[in-house]
Computed example of a mutant assay.
Amino acid sequence: MALLEIRNLAVEFATARGRFRAVDGVDVTIDEGEILCVVGESGSGKSVSMLAVMGLIAWPGRVTADVMRFAGTDLLGLPSRQRRKLVGKDMAMVFQEPMSSLNPCYPVGWQIAEALRAHNAVAKPKVRDRVVELLDQVGIPAPASRMGAFPHQLSGGMNQRVMIAMAIACNPRLLIADEPTTALDVTIQKQILDLLISLQKQGGMALALITHDMGVVAETAQRVQVMYAGQMVEEQLTDSLFSAPRHPYTAALLDALPERAMGRARLPTIPGVVPGIDDRPSGCLFNPRCRFVQERCLTTPPQLEGPAGARARCHTPLDAAGQPTGVAA
């Protein structure tokens, strides 16, 4: 049985123009101990999907799904008090911006201890020792003295390590990391990624890593879900996705990698932007930017189809040579 199972997830927000569906029909499955990468451009719905899993979509947002189950527990029908017992304990999240996620008014040690106290993770006399142990585990030097530091007294990389310490404090079964390296220097980015993978292996927890960096995907993921404009457009094992992407959007993302553009005069790009509330095309949402667009792509929305573990939302998914199937030459 999967640790996390979600079917047909949708997230809507009320706007002046009516309800806008930011996430539409997304399926997510994560097994115990698995590393799943969710990849896509900014605005593709990656973060919103995972915030919905954590129960962090506030009104006027609305979350619906056919199935939303964690470790056999139905999250949709779970009372808020019971949901709070799961969040931070069995499932935790590292947010994108540590400086906006940590409370500037409290020392970082107090904030980590709060997570331990909220879930009765350790006996009260041992809370301080556990906080020091966690800070040391995530690579913060002189952890005992850093407990009393406020977020503004630490670097961005240190604050992100504090966020990770807080997330793993109760030994969660599922850790969601939302672009944990976005605001960090390149050298610090690798340290944070290595730390997450090390912690995942040590604790055997499942890791859902949200990113737009295909290099990170190649180094970390066992399986990849690609999102575009609120929809999942492809799902594959990592090696298969990099060797033979089935959706034109995935292929375009891979073509834009610098290492694949060696010898070219210019780095390939994807024209246009992810459509918003005012410019949603009919048919396939990717059709204005797709080099393989066909007539039916302009009128008929494609479905997510294909064998298990190799699905694509495309009328003419790409073959091993990178050419659309079912199209006359």
Results as ranks from 00 to 15, higher is better:
L4Y: 04
I6A: 05
R7F: 09
L9A: 08
V11P: 04
V11K: 05
A14Q: 13
T15D: 04
R19E: 14
R19V: 14
R19P: 11
F20I: 11
A22D: 07
V26C: 11
D31A: 14
E34L: 11
E34A: 04
C37S: 13
V38Q: 13
L51K: 13
V53Q: 10
M54G: 10
V63H: 03
D66W: 11
F70S: 04
G72L: 03
T73C: 05
D74S: 12
D74F: 12
L78A: 12
R81C: 05
K85C: 07
N103W: 00
V108R: 02
I112T: 06
R117D: 07
N120G: 11
P125E: 05
P125V: 05
D129W: 01
E133N: 03
E133R: 07
E133L: 00
D136E: 00
Q137F: 02
Q137R: 13
G139I: 03
I140M: 07
S145K: 14
M147G: 03
G148Q: 05
A149V: 04
F150T: 03
P151H: 03
G156Q: 07
V162C: 05
V162I: 15
M163P: 00
R173D: 14
D178Q: 09
E179W: 10
P180Y: 13
T181K: 02
T181R: 11
A183P: 13
L184I: 14
D185G: 15
D185P: 07
D185Y: 09
I188S: 05
K190S: 15
Q191V: 11
L193P: 10
D194G: 14
L195V: 02
I197F: 06
I197N: 03
S198W: 07
K201R: 15
K201N: 13
G203M: 15
L207C: 04
T211Y: 09
D213K: 12
V217P: 01
E219K: 15
E219G: 08
V224C: 08
V224A: 09
G230L: 07
Q231V: 13
V233P: 10
Q236I: 10
S240Y: 08
A244S: 14
L254G: 03
L254I: 10
P258Q: 08
R264C: 06
R266F: 15
P268N: 09
T269K: 13
I270Y: 01
G272W: 08
G272V: 07
V273I: 11
V274T: 14
P275W: 11
G276Y: 11
R280D: 10
G283N: 12
C290W: 00
R291Q: 00
R291E: 00
V293W: 01
V293H: 01
Q294T: 12
Q294G: 03
P301K: 03
P301G: 01
P301R: 00
P301I: 00
Q303M: 13
P307K: 06
A308T: 11
R313E: 03
H315C: 11
T316K: 07
D319S: 06
A320N: 08
Q323N: 12
T325N: 02
T325W: 02
V327A: 10
A328L: 09
A328F: 02
A328T: 09
